[in-house]
């Protein structure tokens, strides 16, 4: 523009596209601005990996709860007040001395929102999505996780209908710890399966 008025910082073309959709959908009564705000607040501030950590800590302490989590994870997380809105089924996959589970969405970024919030950038990236299927052990190594050769690595590909939550192994030396303290050992990445749960000493150093 060849004139000299003072303008606000121009909105990007992308921001204008988002405003376009929003203004049209609001006018048609298809979205409600207050609900949009509430959704954003929910995913920015309320839903996140601390939900999943509480679920895992409960499963470590309560064998009956773990059995319910493995049998019907959607119902088990609902016991703690967490639920999904996309109608997806949640499956819990337990790590053991012989099996290590890791989760990906090769198509896009399907992810268990109610327990982990929205996915991290690396989970959404093309290299992770393609490589963890082809060479899971190498990818896990890059996350600092060495998996012994006699441990089977299982890669679970999420879909719109099915999401996965990994139950990491309970770290050694945590007998008698409270559920709250245990939850601090459960990182987001350990519930995706790219790392293990933190050791007590790691958690102290955080």
């Amino acid at each position: 523009m060849g004139h000299n008025h003072k303008h606000s910082e121009p909105l990007s073309d992308t921001a204008l596209r988002a405003k376009t959709l929003e203004s049209l959908l609001v006018e048609k009564g298809l979205v409600d601005p207050a609900t949009l705000d509430a959704l954003v607040d929910r995913y920015e501030n309320k839903v996140g990996p601390r939900n999943g950590a509480a679920v895992i800590a409960r499963a470590w302490c309560d064998p009956d709860y773990k059995a319910r989590l493995l049998a019907d994870a959607s119902a088990a997380i609902a016991e703690l007040g967490y639920s999904g809105a996309q109608g997806e089924e949640l499956l819990a996959k337990e790590n053991s001395d012989s099996i290590h589970n890791v989760v990906v969405c090769t198509l896009c970024s399907c992810y268990p929102w109610p327990v982990l919030g929205l996915p991290p950038v690396w989970y959404k990236s093309a290299p992770y999505r393609s490589r963890v299927v082809r060479e899971p052990r190498k990818v896990l190594q890059e996350f600092g996780t060495d998996i012994a050769s006699d441990v089977e690595v299982r890669v679970w590909d999420s879909t719109a209908e099915t999401r996965y939550l990994v139950i990491p192994q309970r770290p050694k030396g945590t007998e008698g710890m409270s559920e709250d303290a245990l939850a601090d050992l459960v990182s987001r990445d350990s519930m995706i399966g790219v790392t293990r749960a933190l050791d007590v000493s790691d958690a102290g150093a955080r």
Binding site: A15, A18, K19, L21, L30, V31, L36, V40, A85, Q86
Partner: peptide
Amino acid sequence: VFDEPWQAQAFAMTVQMS
């Protein structure tokens, strides 16, 4: 979670419409 407001807008509209 979101780098810019338009990302949050696009996300929230999609969830609400679905």
